[in-house]
Design a protein around this nucleic acid. Structure first.
Lengths: 251, 251
DNA sequence: CAGTGGTCTAGACCACCAG
DNA sequence: TGGTGGTCTAGACCACTGT
């Protein structure tokens, strides 16, 4: 069946079934669901959709905008609107302290990192407090986009005291592996998890639409001695991640 | 300073600083930040904003729509657009199995529930599997909107085998308290946490805009005997909740 | 009933991409 | 250079709220 036929308004557009942009959005969702609009295929141009459906382009755009927000399609200026490939969800434990790299390897996924920042800096007030720094101390920072199986998964900003990580540029893949070699691998961590709507900049790096739900995780990790070793603030794609925790009755 | 003066475009609208709806959104955010637009106060009507800023109403709406999405303002048809009161964030542990009611009481917050569904039903396939039911077994379901301090906080759908909770209408406040009285309080649970953009229906119940980020939590809890006692699927407001987990190095 | 937000249109111009 | 999405306008009508 041809997509233009599938969208002919006689079959689905009615005057009394709510806003037309909602009806059109539903129709397009159905087309994706049924495979008439296959992953990576392009939708008809907005002007053509308006023509076919006998709606204005503004209304068509409003319908598509919602599909973009829910991650079903992707728009590229000058190029077109494309159906997105569904991405598999990954589970991560919240009871065991594991490294991203090791975690993905266990799942058979190749990990890569794109470096966004890596070096020695003056700490932010947050970092001074969390890491227990003295006045004038500097921090090592690594900020990277983490990918698994070719898909961007998370943005990770780690800050560590200089004596724990003196040479941030030595981090190539696994930070924890490197720390282990220096005998300063953390043994315990506290994580705070919340849901946020992604800002434009972060969304772009993670290859999702602005406003998509993501998980923000702030982790403070500790050495055996009880000293703080690391403050990491990460943003995970909400559509790609499940965190799993085990709870026990508190007495 | 008057809000109309604050929004006079000469002061902030420029031709070359990106889209005008973005510039207007930023200006409005600044107004809220500086207190010129106080919580619960109303913005000028859209038509008046268009007049003041010399933009079209469509552009004004696009700016406001983003503020709605990020939770800064709230629109009520026929009434107006209002600055939202910031709501305090609540932390919840992911290592200890606590009840919502008990948890909030410890923080000095009054909890109430609005019942959305409560009774005995035929189980869904999900529930059959998760609860280990036999063919023909029914389940007790309770579905409620949980509020704390007068604010809606979470939607909670719990399903339990009939012999664990035979009379779902007996649940008034704390489910766990009731289970404890029957000697079937769970001692362990596994939770899966993910981030989602709220759908219209859920968003309305939680008093946030559609598309706002929320946390979806699926919890399976177990009795001392190892038997599954409860399957609960909840949706928490992302802007009100932080979950906190403690991790240990896995060996 | 007056005023507010919600939907919708037709048409214009800009910014970007690909052949 | 032609086609695509991105922004913007002026104006209309509908649906809901509060008085």
């Amino acid at each position: 069946m041809d997509i233009a036929d599938f969208l002919r308004p006689e079959a689905w557009l009615s005057r009394s079934a709510g806003p037309r942009y909602v009806q059109l959005r539903r129709r397009l969702e159905a087309g994706i669901e049924e495979g008439i609009l296959a992953p990576n295929s392009s939708l008809p141009p907005e002007r053509e959709l308006a023509e076919i459906t006998d709606l204005s382009r503004v209304t068509v755009r409003k319908a598509i905008q919602e599909l973009v927000r829910e991650g079903a399609v992707e728009q590229r200026q000058g190029s077109g609107t494309f159906v997105r490939e569904p991405i598999p969800r990954v589970e991560q434990s919240l009871s065991h302290l594991t490294s991203f790299t090791e975690d993905m390897q266990r799942r058979g996924l190749q990990t890569t990192s794109k470096w966004l920042e890596r070096g020695i800096f003056m700490p932010s007030p947050d970092e001074v407090v969390a890491l227990g720094l003295a006045a004038g101390d500097q921090v090592s920072r690594i900020y990277r986009l983490r990918e698994a199986g070719g898909q961007p998964m998370a943005l990770e900003r780690a800050a560590l005291p200089l004596d724990i990580l003196s040479n941030p540029t030595a981090v190539t893949t696994s930070l924890y592996e490197l720390l282990e070699q220096s005998g300063v691998r953390p043994v315990r961590a506290v994580q705070k998890i919340s849901a946020i709507n992604l800002e434009a900049e972060d969304a772009e790096l993670l290859n999702v639409a602005e406003g998509t739900a993501g998980l923000r995780i702030q982790r403070t990790s500790y050495l055996q001695s009880g000293r703080v070793a690391e403050l990491t603030r990460s943003i995970y794609r909400g559509d790609a991640y499940d965190f799993v925790a085990e709870l026990r009755l508190s007495h």
